Computed example of a mutant assay.
Amino acid sequence: MSKGLVVSPDKCTGCRACELACSYSKSDSFNPKDSAISVMFYDEIGLQIPMMCMQCDEPHCVSVCVTNALTKNEKTGIVNYDKEKCIGCKLCISACPFGNITYSSRLKSIIKCDLCGGDPQCVKMCSYGALEYKELDSTLEKRKIIANQFKEAFGEGAK
């Protein structure tokens, strides 16, 4: 079993404190462009959804990385990034089906959530409980949780 981030879109206020906490913990600057979490705004239905690396079971970013700068820790389930091995080809950005890997021209590095090594700062800064870091029952359970959250969020917002 592994732990992961669980998002409750109905609790997100769009304050973006999670983005600031992430960028500060990773790069010592309050810059949402350097954050591994991004709040997506769906104004037409009044919804905000924090998005970050899904720590995929079979991550495409890892499979396309020619230098093994991205590796999956089978014990924790976290896809880790080694900046020293990265050559900046950005294939991982293209390979991510969710668009949750970006590139910071300021840092000259990809930006990808690594769950802060098991102590996600975004969760600590989320005053409204929209982000939780908790045990996930299984791989299938992880996918169901994510799918149901989006279904509920968009279903309720569209009414």
Rank of each mutant, 00 (worst) to 15 (best):
M40N: 12
S27V: 05
S38M: 12
K33L: 10
E152Q: 08
S109G: 09
M51Q: 11
I146F: 13
K72N: 03
E19L: 05
E156G: 02
K112A: 01
K90H: 03
S25W: 04
I146Y: 13
L91W: 05
L20W: 11
G118K: 04
D119M: 04
N68D: 15
S127V: 13
I78K: 01
S105W: 03
M1V: 15
L107N: 15
K85V: 00
G14A: 15
D10Y: 02
H60P: 03
P50T: 06
F41D: 15
A158D: 11
T71L: 01
L131F: 13
E44Y: 06
K112S: 02
Y133S: 04
S38N: 15
S27C: 09
A158V: 14
V7F: 03
F98L: 09
D28E: 13
F30N: 04
I49P: 02
C22E: 10
I93D: 11
R143Q: 15
G77R: 02
A95Q: 12
I37W: 00
I78F: 07
I101T: 01
K142R: 15
K83A: 12
C15M: 11
Q55N: 09
D10F: 02
A95R: 10
G117Y: 04
M54G: 11
C12G: 05
L47W: 04
K11A: 14
N73C: 10
E132Q: 12
V39W: 02
E19M: 11
K72A: 02
C56L: 08
I49T: 09
I145F: 11
C116R: 05
L140I: 04
D34S: 07
I87D: 15
G157D: 13
R106S: 10
A95N: 11
E152L: 07
K144I: 07
V39R: 03
K159G: 06
K11R: 15
F98Y: 15
S35Y: 07
K85E: 01
P32H: 03
K134G: 07
S63G: 04
I101R: 01
K151H: 06
S127C: 13
